[in-house]
Design a protein around this nucleic acid. Structure first.
Lengths: 267, 267
DNA sequence: CGAAATCTTGAGTATAATCAAAAACGGTGG
DNA sequence: CCACCGTTTTTGATTATACTCAAGATTTCG
């Protein structure tokens, strides 16, 4: 049974749900989980209950992926996109001199490679940083849904626009800020995004990112990251132990980071 | 006469064309010009002649804007997007310490603030670097067209995804490359994009960007930009005189830049 | 428990920033 | 056409930020 026959049934979400469950019994994720992630997304408010039901009912191929695996690679021509349900991922690029530049840290609820829906070839690589639970949705399915449910199309388009806004801010961050502000900014951004999806209370969060990875994300050497983090700790802004980040002085960190969260387009 | 009544007539492009001409007689731009710009866009091939006719016939408010003017500002909530027909623009951000980070250089054919179609508040400022000819299209019009012409919707969505791909590459550029490569990369990118829309033959192009602006785009001081450009000239890769850029050794420049144009998603 | 990965610190170096000032250029008006 | 003014480019000298190399401490994981 191909995607086409699934698409035919898309007017009836419950039928799809049944299909999905019959196909992926071992990895089914409750629609509730998905709804909860959606709830954390800005502008999800514009979606009707029917829209959410449709999105929760798409035929999804679930997969648990271990840490440090490539989900999709630069040069790939995917016919599906992945939704991240659990875990932390990273988009990255290699420069000709072998330096790895991390471009963003997708978090649960993100559809990191939704860009491949309308771009044939991937221009970066998406990897897991931790064990991840992801779901793959065929592009054809997404396109059919977009054609039938304009609010979902707008929601998805908008989510790619927010990704772009975050990339813009990263340009400003690595191009225009000191090491100190740069790292503080990345931490502010991450904790605010995690808070939006309920994975942080704004004070503490799981943060399984090595200093090497922080350096790759901010364009700094690992040694300099280490010294800069130490400064941030000594300023009593935060602690980072056992993959757990705790903010001790949010106002101070925000000021150090020059952080203004409007670009995240939350709320 | 509001936008709504225009939208009603959208099934008939010629009627719209007539409306447009009657409204903006002094600034009408031939559909040919627009078609020519579209032709330079990748994936325009997926558009039918009807699609192109529709896009050429949208009610557009044309405007000539002098150099160094803000088209839209961070914090604005635009109800329209602008199409750049002539001239060079720049997206930019100010850091808290007053440093200006340029995020991209929109060129003719681009719809730089199409992101505002689905994002309420702008997170950066768009300014002209030279005198520009721009056309404003109401968001409501674009949304109506997208609903009726899915190929146009895909084309526009895709164009915002390419913008995002360019932002990603800029993160890599400012975060991961030396000053020398960084500037070379920016020049390679710009000339290839200009070539795609017929504003360069791949060897020479108009390049009215000051060294200050180059520095703001690459995250380098003006002094360092000057010395680095000198190096590139002394390596006989290029000349830059009278706002005119000439590539003397494309292969050499590409190697210096570590430039791989796949991310531009041309062709 | 042992090996590998990660974090931390020190020392020396390189890249790029800042400060300062002169030269060249571009546009304007007399 | 030339003199003038503001902008842009260029160069020199000094300083600061961040990188590299190296090695030891700590943590994580099998």
């Amino acid at each position: 049974m191909g995607v086409q026959s699934l698409i035919v049934g898309i007017q009836n979400p419950l039928a799809l749900e049944a299909l999905k469950l019959s196909q992926q019994p071992e990895h089914s994720l409750s629609a509730l989980t998905y709804r909860k992630l959606l709830a954390g997304k800005s502008a999800a408010g514009k979606l009707t209950p029917e829209d959410i039901e449709v999105m929760s009912s798409l035929p999804i191929h679930f997969m648990d992926i271990r840490a440090d695996q490539d989900i999709v690679r630069e040069g790939d021509r995917p016919s599906r996109s992945c939704i991240l349900f659990e875990g932390l991922a990273a988009w990255w690029n290699l420069t000709a001199k072998g330096k790895r530049q991390i471009l963003s840290f997708p978090i649960p609820g993100d559809i990191p490679d939704l860009n491949s829906l309308h771009l044939d070839v991937l221009d970066a690589t998406l990897s897991t940083l931790t064990t991840c639970k992801v779901g793959f949705v065929q592009h054809e399915v997404v396109k059919t849904v977009c054609a039938e449910y304009p609010r979902i199309a707008e929601f998805l388009w908008r989510s790619t626009l927010i990704d772009a806004a975050i990339f813009r801010q990263w340009v400003t961050n690595v191009g225009g800020r000191s090491a100190y502000s740069r790292i503080a900014h990345l931490l502010c951004e991450t904790i605010v995004r995690l808070q939006a999806i309920g994975l942080s209370d704004g004070v503490t969060c799981s943060f399984p990112v090595t200093q090497q990875e922080l350096g790759d994300a901010t364009g700094l050497s690992i040694v300099h990251v280490n010294r800069t983090l130490k400064q941030l700790r000594e300023a009593d802004f935060l602690t980072h132990k056992d993959e757990k980040l705790t903010i001790l002085d949010w106002a101070g960190l925000v000021e150090a980071a020059e952080f203004e969260p409007a670009y995240l387009h939350l709320r």
